[in-house]
Design a protein around this nucleic acid. Structure first.
Lengths: 218, 218
DNA sequence: TACCCTAGCAAACGTTTGTTTCACGTCAAG
DNA sequence: CTTGACGTGAAACAAACGTTTGCTAGGGTA
């Protein structure tokens, strides 16, 4: 998708049509104009990013809050770090950074439930925390997760590209989970737990988490 | 600056010149073309963002690593959260998210020293940690800090705008510092240290408390 | 056959883009 | 006073933009 790579303004209808092998007039015919095509792309991207092998599960009643947080982080890292549809996620993230009036609603619909889900988990985890701290704690979790998507190009420039690329979804999810749980006092401090050497390097998940997923362009 | 608000492609030379009260031909006369003007803007933004009342200090020899981290976080939060030159920081962050070939060098020059500084501090703080974990820990710190700049629009959409705006630089810096130090086991766990007594259960959770409601279509 | 409607295409539309041109004003040096 | 370099503003430029137009098939209906 050209919109995902270049953004709304930089993407031209001619390039989009050349890429999709359709005639220029088709955009006007089917969508009306460029902006309405963009909105439809956003909706499609939202549907793509939201669907997947694992949606946000509704846990069994007895699930411990810590496990919920663990699962939440794992899913969110998987979604953003190695999404089934990279271009769809890229398009959403672009709107994320610079929301346009067109995509505001779509973004809200996509993000809001997850934000509330995280806050509910944290609230269950820290019953006594005031809302302000709850909010910032959620931001700390999401900030860690989103960093790898939003700042990866810069990180690869500054450090070794290979070292950054070696951080796969499983490693990142594990790190963020431990870091967060340790910060909340729900697990031993991070470096001490790691110094024991119990951490196995072999448990990385195979990167093809959905080998049969249709990978067509939006 | 029009570039900061709209990005390179969306900003037109006519709007830039109208905004700056100069003639269109002046751009060609002084800079050559639009792109070289953009590079000069980036350099100027870098100079603006780097200068300030407190540059990155060189601490006295005896400074404890914890205090260095505290100061680092405080400075970075202050720079990104309430920068002296908002538009300059906005322009840098735009390049940050979508680096162009033009601005790559400028960005590297601006960010790289700070990244290494943070890693040195963390290395001093955690002598035994392997590089991989050191890297991710630095990302966790920077992710928390950058979240408030890169995702503020979305956060304001999802939660109360006032609640998000109430998180000033000092509060964010304090939170990130405590969260990080607790995660590293260098301070007591965060919620315990903070649980002074604000035990208010009647916080405003806007109707998000429907655990298995069908509206949750994630 | 005659008619209508939809889908799709090439070409052209008017506008806006970044850039260039050129005449004019300024001012210090010769 | 003349000269020439410098800076500036209005206009013009080709190219590219999003959008519209007019036309051609093709299939269903009466």
């Amino acid at each position: 998708m050209v919109f995902a790579k270049k953004g709304f303004d930089s993407a031209t209808v001619r390039e989009i049509c050349r890429d999709a092998d359709v005639n220029i007039a088709a955009i006007s015919y089917y969508f009306g104009d460029k902006e309405r095509l963009y909105v439809e792309c956003l909706k499609a991207a939202h549907d793509c990013a939201d669907a997947g092998p694992e949606s946000m599960p509704s846990w069994p009643d007895g699930t411990a809050a810590v496990d919920k947080l663990r699962a939440f982080i794992g899913i969110m890292v998987g979604r953003t770090h190695a999404p089934a549809r990279p271009t769809a996620m890229q398009l959403l993230m672009r709107e994320f950074a610079h929301p346009s009036a067109a995509g505001q609603e779509v973004i809200l619909q996509y993000i809001r439930p997850k934000a509330f889900r995280l806050r509910d988990i944290l609230h269950e985890l820290l019953p006594g925390a005031d809302p302000r701290r709850l909010l910032m704690t959620g931001f700390s979790v999401m900030g860690q997760i989103l960093f790898y998507r939003q700042n990866r190009p810069v990180a690869e420039l500054i450090f070794d590209k290979e070292a950054v690329d070696a951080l796969d979804a499983a490693a990142v999810a594990d790190h963020v989970t431990r870091f967060t749980l340790a910060a909340l006092g729900l697990e031993p401090p991070y470096p001490l737990a790691a110094a024991g050497g119990s951490r196995k390097e072999e448990e990385r998940t195979p990167e093809s988490q959905s080998p049969d997923a249709p990978r067509n362009q939006i």
